[in-house]
Design a protein around this nucleic acid. Sequence first.
DNA 1: TCGATTATGGGTAACGTTCCCCAAAAAGTT
DNA 2: AACTTTTTGGGGAACGTTACCCATAATCGA
Lengths: 345, 345
Amino acid sequence: MEVPTPPRRVTIVDVARHAQVSTTAVSKVLRNAYGASPAMRAKVQQAITELGYRPNAAARGLRGQTYTIGVMLPDIRNPFFPDIVDGLTDALRDTPYQVLLGPGGCNDEHAEACVTEAMIDRGMDAMVLVAPISPRSHLEHIATSVPTVVVGRHGHSSWYDVVSDDDQAGAALVVDHLVGLGHRRIAHIEHAETDPDRLAEMPNAIRAEGYKQAMRAHGLGAEIDIVSTTYTQEGGYVGARQLLARPERPTAVFAGADVVAMGVLEAFTEAGVSVPEDISVAGYDNTTFAALGPVSLTSVDQAGHHIGAETARLLLDRIADRNRPSVQVKLSPTLVTRHTTAPPP
Amino acid sequence: MEVPTPPRRVTIVDVARHAQVSTTAVSKVLRNAYGASPAMRAKVQQAITELGYRPNAAARGLRGQTYTIGVMLPDIRNPFFPDIVDGLTDALRDTPYQVLLGPGGCNDEHAEACVTEAMIDRGMDAMVLVAPISPRSHLEHIATSVPTVVVGRHGHSSWYDVVSDDDQAGAALVVDHLVGLGHRRIAHIEHAETDPDRLAEMPNAIRAEGYKQAMRAHGLGAEIDIVSTTYTQEGGYVGARQLLARPERPTAVFAGADVVAMGVLEAFTEAGVSVPEDISVAGYDNTTFAALGPVSLTSVDQAGHHIGAETARLLLDRIADRNRPSVQVKLSPTLVTRHTTAPPP
DNA sequence: TCGATTATGGGTAACGTTCCCCAAAAAGTT
DNA sequence: AACTTTTTGGGGAACGTTACCCATAATCGA
């Protein structure tokens, strides 16, 4: 009844025998390397399709290439990341490379290290680290053993390439928009960061900095009002409650991330504060949440798809030449205005 | 300046030399196989930590095991899937197995096949297929070459194990809840399915069937009202518009998925219909959306974490004994009532 | 004390590719 | 015609592990 042994896989040797050539020849055709005549190529290709041959990645890996690109995602739940992955896979569609995702535990440095190590063990040809929280030294350690692109974390290194959104400009977009509507008391909810290393590199810190600079640029330095919580719905809720307790309430809240804005909206609903009539709210990331009908949140779009595509380009580039100097790409975000922002009352 | 050659990786040979034993011995310790004395184990372990040795997965793969489990996710954006992945990785934490995710294109049979093939090429020790849309024959083809668990798709096979939510019971939970509140005209928005194969196996079809049966069980067979669209926000929007155009509007809408409910809420907001005062809305999946402050959607919780854990158990089981008979596990969903359902006006 | 069993350790051939070679044939060059 | 150069094809040794063996030493039973 049961088939006890799965049929043995077709190997390069089978193909060679079937096409009456050497295994070397087949290998050359597979990698379209120099030294195979058109006639030979055709013959081998035919044998490959006839037998349904597929190269064994493990064997290839042992020789150096697995044609696999590992992407470390710290939090699969973050709706911004899929855009990046899509951009990456789309750009890699016509290459022999396959993308595999590693689920790094959310905000867990150890889990993150486990996943990246596991990927290196598995001979990934290149790695993409999305918003990693590991210390810089660890990132560089990874980058020395495999071509690496760090996405969504500022701060450059000569060992890896960096692709990120210009968070400072993004924050300015929000402030400009709100000021344009007539707001002056604009508060910001940020993700608290103590580690000095990350303080300079993580997007949340840059966004807060961008907020401050933009406020000052509008002559609103005295109105700067920052609440430090975390980039979670809970953090947004807590932050909003604090803002509501202010003697003079802000007329607009710039949440550092869409999830934070969700918490803010919840707190406001609970407190009977209407958005945008009483207070305007803006988020960051333009996640699926923001576009949701009942939410319709003004947010900053990071063009994740574009980020992914750019990452792919850098990756292929670096695989081709491991010694080229490192590069930092910064992409400009755009503002998507929806129904949570309006002129102040 | 640049380091041209990354330092050669430590191999089993290095460990053997450093511990003054044979490579065989090291291998035995690594796999804690029979034939190594405690003294030897200690000696080798020490050498391993001293040198920072990590086994090469490619070489292992060539010999049969990669200690990697491939998970095909058809749509990374679906907020229900992360729960499954979490359950899986948590359950696998103390095993040597590592989970890697493959991004199958959304609703794209070809992309799905590419990813699964790529995973087989890469020697995955087992595969998890989450809500695959490929025809049954392809699933069985996969299952013959690697231990496979299919998640979130009904219909059993003797080649693979199945873990799923009891969608029929879930739909009944919603109907019971609404009827309990006093509703009679309860409409359902389903995902249209024509393929007869999938019609019997895909969760959406089962949910619609569960809705119908539950309605009949309450003597409401005459009130059955189904709109066929798709499981997307757009589909929900379109479906809701159709329901609003009915001569006699329903007093409650059961959306087959949370994203669908989002579209429904959007259409209702636009039409000036209040929820839950005028019409109640319920979803399915209890995704992050549902819990969102401004949304607060009544939804069915599938216990994704539990599904993932169960999947891990079956996987390890099947790796240990490839010939054990196949199993189907069906988990009971629960209803999470929030603020979008209330008694009819 | 002797043979039988068991514990302990190692030698070595795979696994499926790739890549560095070298040989032979074909095509140019003088 | 006698060479150099280029094209075309293949032989065979790695890559790092594991698993099947076989040797020796230790333990045991009578």
